[in-house]
Amino acid sequence: MAISESHQRFLQILMSHGIMEASAVRKLHKHCCEVHKVHYMHDKLDDFVDVINKHLQPLFMQIRKGTDENDGRRYYSLVNIAENEVTKMAMDYAENELELFRKAMDLIIDSDNGFASSTNILNLADQLQSKKMKKKEVEQLLQNFVQDKWLIERDGEYSLHTRCLMEMEHYIQSTYQDMVKTCNICHNVAIQGQVCDNCGIKIHLTCVEKYFKGHEEPRCPQCAEGWSQEIPRLSQTDSPVPSTSQKETRAGQRKAISVAASTRSRRS
Protein backbone atom coordinates (compact mmCIF):
# COMPACT_ATOMS: atom_id res chain seq x y z
CA MET A 1 0.00 0.00 0.00
CA ALA A 2 1.30 3.41 -0.95
CA ILE A 3 2.09 5.97 1.67
CA SER A 4 -0.52 8.71 1.91
CA GLU A 5 -0.67 12.15 3.45
CA SER A 6 -2.34 10.71 6.53
CA HIS A 7 0.73 8.52 7.07
CA GLN A 8 3.05 11.45 6.48
CA ARG A 9 1.25 13.60 9.02
CA PHE A 10 1.33 10.77 11.54
CA LEU A 11 5.07 10.37 11.01
CA GLN A 12 5.79 14.09 11.23
CA ILE A 13 3.92 14.52 14.49
CA LEU A 14 5.37 11.39 16.06
CA MET A 15 8.82 12.65 15.12
CA SER A 16 8.27 16.06 16.68
CA HIS A 17 7.35 14.40 19.97
CA GLY A 18 10.34 12.05 20.04
CA ILE A 19 8.30 9.42 21.84
CA MET A 20 4.57 9.01 22.36
CA GLU A 21 2.47 6.93 24.69
CA ALA A 22 0.24 4.34 23.02
CA SER A 23 -3.04 6.04 23.91
CA ALA A 24 -1.79 9.32 22.39
CA VAL A 25 -0.68 7.41 19.29
CA ARG A 26 -4.16 5.95 18.91
CA LYS A 27 -5.62 9.46 19.06
CA LEU A 28 -3.05 10.63 16.54
CA HIS A 29 -4.03 7.80 14.19
CA LYS A 30 -7.66 8.91 14.34
CA HIS A 31 -6.71 12.57 13.92
CA CYS A 32 -4.60 11.91 10.82
CA CYS A 33 -7.29 9.80 9.17
CA GLU A 34 -9.89 12.46 9.85
CA VAL A 35 -7.79 15.37 8.57
CA HIS A 36 -7.21 13.56 5.28
CA LYS A 37 -10.67 12.02 5.11
CA VAL A 38 -9.37 8.48 5.10
CA HIS A 39 -11.56 5.74 6.50
CA TYR A 40 -10.49 5.32 10.11
CA MET A 41 -10.42 1.86 11.62
CA HIS A 42 -9.51 1.99 15.26
CA ASP A 43 -8.21 -1.59 15.28
CA LYS A 44 -5.93 -1.06 12.30
CA LEU A 45 -3.20 1.03 13.92
CA ASP A 46 -0.65 -1.74 13.47
CA ASP A 47 -1.39 -1.98 9.75
CA PHE A 48 -1.19 1.80 9.49
CA VAL A 49 2.24 1.80 11.13
CA ASP A 50 3.36 -1.15 8.99
CA VAL A 51 2.73 0.85 5.83
CA ILE A 52 4.98 3.61 7.12
CA ASN A 53 7.60 1.15 8.26
CA LYS A 54 7.74 -0.46 4.83
CA HIS A 55 8.72 2.91 3.42
CA LEU A 56 11.13 3.66 6.24
CA GLN A 57 12.98 0.37 5.89
CA PRO A 58 15.18 1.39 2.94
CA LEU A 59 16.20 4.41 5.01
CA PHE A 60 17.13 2.24 8.00
CA MET A 61 14.49 3.75 10.21
CA GLN A 62 11.52 2.23 11.96
CA ILE A 63 8.59 3.13 14.16
CA ARG A 64 9.08 0.86 17.10
CA LYS A 65 6.96 -0.08 20.07
CA GLY A 66 8.59 -0.20 23.46
CA THR A 67 7.50 -0.77 27.01
CA ASP A 68 8.30 1.52 29.88
CA GLU A 69 10.20 -0.55 32.41
CA ASN A 70 8.51 1.22 35.24
CA ASP A 71 4.85 1.44 34.56
CA GLY A 72 4.59 -1.13 31.78
CA ARG A 73 2.99 1.35 29.39
CA ARG A 74 3.53 1.01 25.67
CA TYR A 75 5.32 3.73 23.76
CA TYR A 76 5.99 4.47 20.09
CA SER A 77 9.10 6.10 18.73
CA LEU A 78 10.86 6.57 15.42
CA VAL A 79 14.26 4.95 15.77
CA ASN A 80 17.39 4.60 13.72
CA ILE A 81 18.18 0.94 13.03
CA ALA A 82 21.46 1.41 11.20
CA GLU A 83 24.73 1.33 13.06
CA ASN A 84 25.80 4.68 11.75
CA GLU A 85 27.01 7.75 13.47
CA VAL A 86 23.93 9.87 13.11
CA THR A 87 22.10 9.82 16.37
CA LYS A 88 19.79 12.47 17.63
CA MET A 89 21.89 12.79 20.71
CA ALA A 90 25.25 13.20 19.00
CA MET A 91 23.95 16.28 17.23
CA ASP A 92 22.62 18.00 20.30
CA TYR A 93 25.50 17.64 22.71
CA ALA A 94 29.17 18.48 22.85
CA GLU A 95 31.83 15.82 23.08
CA ASN A 96 32.43 16.11 26.82
CA GLU A 97 28.69 16.09 27.45
CA LEU A 98 28.38 12.85 25.51
CA GLU A 99 31.31 11.42 27.45
CA LEU A 100 29.55 12.26 30.68
CA PHE A 101 26.40 10.60 29.40
CA ARG A 102 28.28 7.42 28.53
CA LYS A 103 29.91 7.36 31.96
CA ALA A 104 26.53 7.90 33.64
CA MET A 105 25.16 5.07 31.54
CA ASP A 106 28.01 2.85 32.80
CA LEU A 107 26.92 3.58 36.37
CA ILE A 108 23.26 2.95 35.62
CA ILE A 109 23.87 -0.36 33.89
CA ASP A 110 26.36 -1.46 36.51
CA SER A 111 23.87 -0.83 39.31
CA ASP A 112 21.48 -3.46 40.63
CA ASN A 113 18.27 -1.48 40.37
CA GLY A 114 19.11 0.52 37.25
CA PHE A 115 19.61 3.84 38.96
CA ALA A 116 22.68 5.98 39.56
CA SER A 117 22.69 8.63 42.24
CA SER A 118 23.21 12.25 41.28
CA THR A 119 26.17 12.39 43.67
CA ASN A 120 27.93 9.64 41.79
CA ILE A 121 27.17 11.24 38.45
CA LEU A 122 28.39 14.65 39.67
CA ASN A 123 31.62 13.01 40.74
CA LEU A 124 32.24 12.08 37.12
CA ALA A 125 32.70 15.76 36.32
CA ASP A 126 36.44 15.76 36.89
CA GLN A 127 37.06 12.33 35.40
CA LEU A 128 36.24 13.48 31.90
CA GLN A 129 39.00 13.11 29.37
CA SER A 130 37.66 15.33 26.62
CA LYS A 131 37.08 18.47 28.66
CA LYS A 132 36.44 18.80 32.36
CA MET A 133 33.14 20.19 33.58
CA LYS A 134 32.09 22.06 36.67
CA LYS A 135 29.58 20.39 38.99
CA LYS A 136 27.13 23.18 38.26
CA GLU A 137 27.42 22.47 34.55
CA VAL A 138 26.78 18.78 35.14
CA GLU A 139 23.69 19.61 37.16
CA GLN A 140 22.34 21.69 34.28
CA LEU A 141 23.31 19.00 31.79
CA LEU A 142 21.43 16.34 33.75
CA GLN A 143 18.35 18.53 33.59
CA ASN A 144 18.77 18.79 29.83
CA PHE A 145 19.11 15.03 29.52
CA VAL A 146 15.84 14.64 31.41
CA GLN A 147 14.07 17.29 29.33
CA ASP A 148 15.29 15.76 26.10
CA LYS A 149 14.06 12.35 27.27
CA TRP A 150 17.38 10.58 27.51
CA LEU A 151 17.26 10.13 31.29
CA ILE A 152 14.58 10.00 33.93
CA GLU A 153 15.01 11.33 37.44
CA ARG A 154 13.46 9.93 40.58
CA ASP A 155 14.27 11.14 44.07
CA GLY A 156 17.72 12.34 43.05
CA GLU A 157 18.56 9.17 41.14
CA TYR A 158 18.82 8.76 37.40
CA SER A 159 17.98 5.98 34.99
CA LEU A 160 17.55 5.63 31.23
CA HIS A 161 14.41 6.98 29.61
CA THR A 162 12.32 4.51 27.62
CA ARG A 163 13.11 6.55 24.53
CA CYS A 164 16.82 6.13 25.21
CA LEU A 165 16.41 2.37 25.57
CA MET A 166 14.46 2.16 22.33
CA GLU A 167 16.82 4.34 20.41
CA MET A 168 20.04 2.89 21.77
CA GLU A 169 19.11 -0.72 22.33
CA HIS A 170 21.67 -1.84 19.80
CA TYR A 171 24.39 0.37 21.21
CA ILE A 172 23.68 -0.77 24.75
CA GLN A 173 23.77 -4.44 23.85
CA SER A 174 26.93 -4.25 21.82
CA THR A 175 28.73 -2.04 24.34
CA TYR A 176 27.78 -3.75 27.57
CA GLN A 177 27.04 -7.27 26.31
CA ASP A 178 26.83 -9.60 29.32
CA MET A 179 26.63 -6.69 31.73
CA VAL A 180 23.14 -5.90 30.54
CA LYS A 181 20.76 -8.32 32.14
CA THR A 182 17.62 -9.60 30.52
CA CYS A 183 14.45 -9.95 32.52
CA ASN A 184 13.90 -13.49 33.73
CA ILE A 185 10.18 -13.22 33.00
CA CYS A 186 9.79 -11.35 29.70
CA HIS A 187 13.35 -11.83 28.41
CA ASN A 188 13.71 -8.21 27.29
CA VAL A 189 16.57 -5.96 28.32
CA ALA A 190 16.15 -5.00 31.95
CA ILE A 191 17.79 -1.86 33.29
CA GLN A 192 15.39 -0.94 36.05
CA GLY A 193 14.23 -3.89 38.08
CA GLN A 194 14.80 -6.06 41.10
CA VAL A 195 17.64 -8.52 41.51
CA CYS A 196 17.48 -11.84 43.35
CA ASP A 197 19.74 -11.64 46.41
CA ASN A 198 20.66 -15.27 45.99
CA CYS A 199 21.20 -16.02 42.29
CA GLY A 200 21.35 -12.52 40.83
CA ILE A 201 18.67 -12.76 38.14
CA LYS A 202 16.85 -9.54 37.31
CA ILE A 203 13.13 -8.92 36.84
CA HIS A 204 11.36 -5.76 35.69
CA LEU A 205 9.23 -4.08 38.33
CA THR A 206 6.13 -4.57 36.21
CA CYS A 207 7.02 -8.22 35.63
CA VAL A 208 7.65 -8.71 39.37
CA GLU A 209 4.22 -7.29 40.03
CA LYS A 210 2.47 -9.54 37.55
CA TYR A 211 4.47 -12.66 38.35
CA PHE A 212 4.11 -12.51 42.12
CA LYS A 213 0.52 -11.36 42.12
CA GLY A 214 -1.40 -13.24 44.77
CA HIS A 215 1.68 -15.11 46.03
CA GLU A 216 1.82 -15.21 49.80
CA GLU A 217 5.48 -16.19 49.87
CA PRO A 218 7.05 -15.09 46.60
CA ARG A 219 10.01 -17.20 45.48
CA CYS A 220 12.63 -16.53 42.82
CA PRO A 221 11.59 -18.20 39.55
CA GLN A 222 15.21 -19.23 39.01
CA CYS A 223 16.58 -20.51 42.32
CA ALA A 224 13.36 -20.80 44.35
CA GLU A 225 14.81 -18.81 47.25
CA GLY A 226 12.46 -16.41 48.98
CA TRP A 227 12.15 -13.08 47.13
CA SER A 228 13.39 -10.56 49.63
CA GLN A 229 12.49 -7.35 47.78
CA GLU A 230 9.31 -5.49 48.33
CA ILE A 231 6.76 -6.32 45.64
CA PRO A 232 5.76 -3.09 43.92
CA ARG A 233 2.16 -2.27 43.19
CA LEU A 234 1.98 0.11 40.33
CA SER A 235 -1.27 1.59 39.21
CA GLN A 236 -1.82 1.41 35.49
CA THR A 237 -4.17 3.86 33.90
CA ASP A 238 -4.23 1.89 30.67
CA SER A 239 -5.67 -1.33 32.00
CA PRO A 240 -8.78 -1.60 34.10
CA VAL A 241 -7.76 -1.23 37.70
CA PRO A 242 -8.84 -4.14 39.90
CA SER A 243 -10.86 -3.30 42.96
CA THR A 244 -7.99 -4.25 45.24
CA SER A 245 -6.22 -1.11 44.08
CA GLN A 246 -7.96 0.69 46.91
CA LYS A 247 -5.49 -0.95 49.21
CA GLU A 248 -2.50 0.27 47.29
CA THR A 249 0.29 1.52 49.41
CA ARG A 250 0.93 5.23 49.42
CA ALA A 251 4.48 4.64 48.38
CA GLY A 252 3.36 2.75 45.31
CA GLN A 253 1.11 5.56 44.26
CA ARG A 254 3.76 8.14 44.80
CA LYS A 255 6.14 6.16 42.70
CA ALA A 256 3.67 5.86 39.85
CA ILE A 257 2.99 9.58 39.93
CA SER A 258 6.62 10.58 39.87
CA VAL A 259 7.27 8.20 36.99
CA ALA A 260 4.40 9.64 35.02
CA ALA A 261 5.78 13.09 35.66
CA SER A 262 9.23 12.12 34.51
CA THR A 263 8.01 10.63 31.26
CA ARG A 264 5.91 13.64 30.42
CA SER A 265 6.81 15.78 27.48
CA ARG A 266 9.49 18.38 27.14
CA ARG A 267 9.76 21.82 28.60
CA SER A 268 6.40 22.97 29.74
Binding site: M15, L59, F60, M61, E85, V86, M91
Partner: peptide, 17 residues
Protein backbone atom coordinates in the same frame (compact mmCIF):
# COMPACT_ATOMS: atom_id res chain seq x y z
CA UNK B 1 25.01 4.09 -0.88
CA UNK B 2 21.59 3.36 0.60
CA UNK B 3 23.08 3.45 4.10
CA UNK B 4 24.49 6.88 3.33
CA UNK B 5 21.17 8.08 1.96
CA UNK B 6 19.41 6.91 5.12
CA UNK B 7 21.99 8.65 7.24
CA UNK B 8 21.60 11.85 5.23
CA UNK B 9 17.80 11.77 5.52
CA UNK B 10 18.04 11.39 9.29
CA UNK B 11 20.58 14.15 9.55
CA UNK B 12 18.38 16.55 7.63
CA UNK B 13 15.33 15.60 9.70
CA UNK B 14 17.10 16.06 13.02
CA UNK B 15 18.57 19.37 11.95
CA UNK B 16 15.18 20.57 10.79
CA UNK B 17 13.58 19.83 14.15
Amino acid sequence: ISLKVGELVQYLLIRDQ
